[in-house]
């Protein structure tokens, strides 16, 4: 059996990045799954990783991994790889993981496959191009083989197992402590997280002006358990913060229902939402590509329909 490692990110409270659990679920199907988690919260996170199938978790709560960007984690992961020789090391497409994976690729001389959406076997990963219309299977190379997966590529399922937690103690040289986090800012969001909400309401340029996003907030409040997102176009235009962005760059969502309001359906956006169970689209242009994906498509004026919809939802909820 191949030894398959998953590099997991954690919050200081020990909350594991959900994408790491998804990948771990797949990893244990392909081989013997183990995990590496570095930084404050790691030991607590290790328990959860065990529940999702990691037989062994290499963990360190050392603050050095949280205080300094990428280099200490890369150094530690590299020395763990030299010691234990995994066949594959899998990462989630998350900010820190992507940085560590990139650096590791140079250290190991292994090609890194990015944006994968499936792991076919221990030697082959799959990605999707052209807005997901074409699937590309890639033969992995290197020792170990390195792959980064898009979030929500797999469904996380607990294995009922528990992990042996091995404490990592690797000396981090001072010259790897040059990029220091000096402040952390969290943009407070109300309501459920975009990537976890059962309903996502997303706005594009078709909303015409930033003030009209207020209608999406009102609809979200009426539905309850709904989150509001946007396209790259409206984020780049400064209408909503970057944390709203759904798409290739940004967040991937797979809600029960996705409402695309005034969104034409550019490839960059579609890859981030096409996994939704049901898609509703409202757009003035009947030729908009988004209609090809829609379970219910409305050709019409979103600004006229939204106030009516808010009332209809309220009525039905009583």
């Amino acid at each position: 059996m191949a030894k398959v490692w998953v590099f997991a990110e954690t919050t200081p409270e020990g909350e594991v990045d959900p994408a790491a659990l998804e990948i771990l679920t797949k990893a244990r199907e392909i081989g013997d799954a183990e995990a590496v988690v570095l930084g404050p919260g790691a030991t607590k996170a290790a328990e959860k990783l065990g529940e999702f199938g990691a037989a062994t978790v290499y963990a360190s709560d050392d603050e050095v991994y949280g205080d300094y960007v990428a280099q200490p984690a890369t150094h530690a992961l590299h020395s763990l790889i030299e010691e234990h020789s995994p066949d594959l090391v899998l990462f989630a497409m998350a900010y820190d993981s992507r940085d560590v994976a990139g650096r590791l690729s140079a250290k190991l001389g292994s090609t890194l496959m990015s944006n994968a959406t499936d792991l076919i076997d221990e030697n082959t990963a799959r990605t999707a191009v052209f807005g997901g219309a074409t699937l590309v299977d890639v033969k992995l190379e290197g020792s170990p083989k390195l792959v980064i997966f898009r979030p929500k590529s797999f469904e996380a399922a607990p294995s009922g197992g528990s992990a042996d937690v091995v404490e990592v103690s690797v000396d981090i040289p001072d010259d790897l402590k040059k990029a220091k986090r000096v402040e952390r800012h969290i943009e407070e969001a109300t309501g459920p997280r975009l990537d976890q909400a059962p309903v996502v309401i997303s706005g594009g340029r078709g909303l015409q002006e930033p003030g009209n996003f207020e209608l999406l907030d009102q609809l979200a409040a009426a539905i309850g358990n709904a989150a509001v997102g946007g396209t790259r176009a409206v984020v780049d235009a400064g209408w909503v913060p970057y944390s709203y962005q759904i798409g290739q760059t940004g967040i991937t969502v797979k809600p029960s229902v996705y409402l695309a309001i005034g969104i034409s359906g550019a490839t960059q956006h579609i890859v981030g939402m096409k996994g939704a169970k049901k898609i509703i689209a409202i757009n003035k242009d009947e030729e908009a590509p988004i209609f090809q994906l829609a379970d219910l498509g409305i050709v019409g004026d979103a600004l006229k329909i939204l106030p009516q919809l808010i009332e209809e939802v309220k009525t039905r909820k009583g």
């Binding site: 898609i279 050709v299 919809l309 209809e312």
Partner: peptide
């Protein structure tokens, strides 16, 4: 899926759809 032109009834149609999807 179904693509319709809004004739004033689209909002009700969407609400029905949301209800059916149990959200």
């Amino acid at each position: 899926g179904e693509i319709i032109e809004d004739d004033g009834s689209a909002a009700a149609k969407i609400a029905d759809f949301l209800k059916e999807a149990k959200v």
